[in-house]
Design a protein around this nucleic acid. Structure first.
Length: 150
DNA sequence: GTTCTAACA
DNA sequence: TGTTAGTA
């Protein structure tokens, strides 16, 4: 079995067929008509996976599904399409820091004294001290430092 | 049955 | 934007 990082695994999983939809499916899932989806694509608001021929059916990925669902929610709140798209972009921006830190800081999971923990990696320049986080039965986050011997 | 583009009683 | 036509 070849080694695949967790990050790569999740990337591959989201790219897999499990999370790919055709236009009819996406329309049912989001409540946005197929006509709208094609129109939005022509306007560059969303994108579908590359098609060999122009007559081939569109295929959408998970990211596009989230984008469509988000825009749809803002439309339902009364925003115009243009405003809804802007809202979606602002929302993405506000999540960016959280996404960046979580995806880069979390190294994986580990087990400390039999308790599941999140490995937050080294936090000193010498790379001798590693930080772990756990959640106790009171739902309180506990941190623990583990010194790594050379 | 689904999706494609193009067009509009 | 909805809907319909004629295809693939």
């Amino acid at each position: 079995m070849t080694f695949v990082s967790k990050q790569q695994f999740h990337k591959n999983f989201l790219k897999s067929e499990v999370f790919q939809f055709r236009i009819g499916e996406l329309a049912t899932m989001t409540g946005v008509s197929t006509r709208q989806l094609r129109y939005w694509e022509s306007k560059g608001i969303i994108s579908s996976l590359s098609r060999d021929g122009e007559q081939d059916a569109r295929v959408y990925n998970y990211k596009t599904y989230v984008a469509v669902a988000t825009i749809k929610n803002f439309l339902d709140e009364g925003y115009t399409l243009k405003a809804a798209v802007k809202k979606k972009e602002e929302l993405e921006q506000s999540w960016k820091v959280l996404h960046d830190v979580m995806s880069r800081a979390v190294q994986g999971t580990a087990e400390i004294d039999g308790i599941p923990a999140v490995d937050l990696g080294f936090f000193d320049a010498e790379q001798t001290q590693r930080l772990f986080a756990t959640v106790d039965d009171q739902n309180v986050v506990k941190y623990r430092v583990q010194t790594i011997e050379e």
